[in-house]
Amino acid sequence: MPHDHPHPTSRDHSEPRPAFDKLLSQVLAKLDHSGLLTSAEVTAQIEDMEGRTPTEGARLVARCWADPEFLDLARKDLPAAAAKLGVSMPAHPVFLLLENTEELHHVVVCTLCSCYPRPILGPPPVWYKSRNYRSRVVVEPREVLAEFGTVIREKANLRVVDSTADCRYLVLPLRPRGTENLTEKELADLVTRDSMIGVTNVSM
């Protein structure tokens, strides 16, 4: 049975093994030689990826909190809203905003693999890709959130949303009380990656 394996994701915390490093070199050399993919393209892509961090998502969230018209746009067309902040998103997959309220909290998972709104959050954390998170959050979300130090009040609904290759989600966390006088930049500084996945809330 799959759950009999003791440390399924431990390798994600270590350096790759030499055999895989060798395979990567072989693949890159072959593709460079055939012209399908140059090393310059690989370098440029790595730079693009390194420029995408949860900071982009946090700016989006802060603008949604500060500007009702922007929020409306983000609800209808998240990539168009991101474009207004200078963040490019591909035409596919679909990106949707999940709004947390006092009555409804969202948490996102990809049970089958690791689908994630990478253009606005960067690559997913290792735990998001782990077997334990993927297995458990759909059946015991309150217990999983408690591991992240998050308690959702009993009366609030907790909705677990499963991402797919074709549809990714950004959680719009609840704006904390007492932030009325903060600037948009100060608001963005409060927003964490985990709050945009839904495993935590934003706090002052």
Partner: peptide, 14 residues
Amino acid sequence: LGGLPAGKIDQTEH
């Protein structure tokens, strides 16, 4: 994997 029994989540950043 959804719904299978599993253990505590390792939150170590990498």
